[in-house]
């Protein structure tokens, strides 16, 4: 998968500061980690990639295809991409199973039987068969995120975007989710993940982008970014993080 972003800029209404300030990126990777300090614009960048937010300026290309940020064409684009939120992304009024089924039926035009089969298969594989009929509020944080990932990949999207999917979880659940993502990656799932889990960014992702101050400071193969960062900013950030590892 090739992702190109050129001159992305975003400023929220009523805010002085630009969250994205001429962000450029050109990367070919099947698993891309976006790392960087909080408030650096990682989530905003991911929302733009996912078509949830239109940039004020700049362009995005997915595999050579330019994203059209026109409200009429966005639903189809979003439907081609899976999205996993940090937390509370599951529809609160639907069971885990219905969370997977509803978009398959309403957006992707599957029959309820076919959608149900796909949901059961995924939820079973993710160890959620027992709790498939429970509402999100009745599930643990880890179960919720697994169900959210099931919902994201059920329509077989070309790409899955994950916005800090483990930040709200305790350490045991975090490892659960990261293991699951790694297994899915080996099965061919392509994804972009915004994460603070540096071990995962380094070992499970083939490329890593360091985003700070609204720009991509550095982007390259993960091993290289972590072993020999080219920029002083990246070195300082990683140095601080690894202090306690």
């Amino acid at each position: 998968m090739r992702i190109r972003a050129a001159g992305l800029a975003k400023r929220y209404p009523g805010s002085e500061r630009a969250v994205l300030d001429g962000l450029d990126l050109d990367v070919e990777a099947d698993a891309l980690a976006v790392i960087g300090p909080s408030g650096g614009g990682k989530s905003t960048f991911l929302r733009i990639l996912g078509g949830l937010l239109a940039p004020d300026a700049g362009t995005v290309e997915m595999d050579g295809e330019r994203v059209d940020y026109d409200e009429a064409s966005l639903p189809a684009y979003r439907a081609s991409i899976g999205y996993v939120f940090q937390q509370n992304g599951l529809f609160q009024h639907l069971s885990a199973r219905e969370n997977v089924v509803m978009p398959l039926v309403r957006v992707h035009g599957l029959s309820r039987e076919e959608a149900g089969r796909r949901a059961d298969e995924l939820l079973g594989r993710f160890g959620l068969a027992e709790v498939a009929d429970q509402l999100p509020a009745q599930l643990s944080g880890g179960q919720q995120q697994r169900a959210a990932i099931a919902r994201a990949i059920a329509p077989r999207p070309r790409l899955v975007l994950l916005d800090e999917p483990t930040s709200a979880l305790d350490p045991a659940y975090t490892v659960d989710i990261l293991d699951l993502l790694d297994a899915l990656r080996r099965d061919g799932m392509r994804f972009v993940i915004v994460t603070h889990e540096m071990g995962f960014a380094r070992r499970a992702c083939d490329a890593c982008a360091f985003l700070d101050g609204g720009r991509i400071v550095e982007c390259g193969p993960s091993e290289q970014v972590f072993e020999a960062p080219a920029h002083e900013q990246t070195r300082a950030f990683l140095g601080r993080l690894l202090e306690w590892r």
Binding site: L52, P75, A76, R78, I81, G89, P103, V107
Partner: peptide
């Protein structure tokens, strides 16, 4: 956001 993200109009 989730409703939009799954592709609902």
């Amino acid at each position: 956001d989730a409703a939009r993200a799954v592709g609902l109009t």
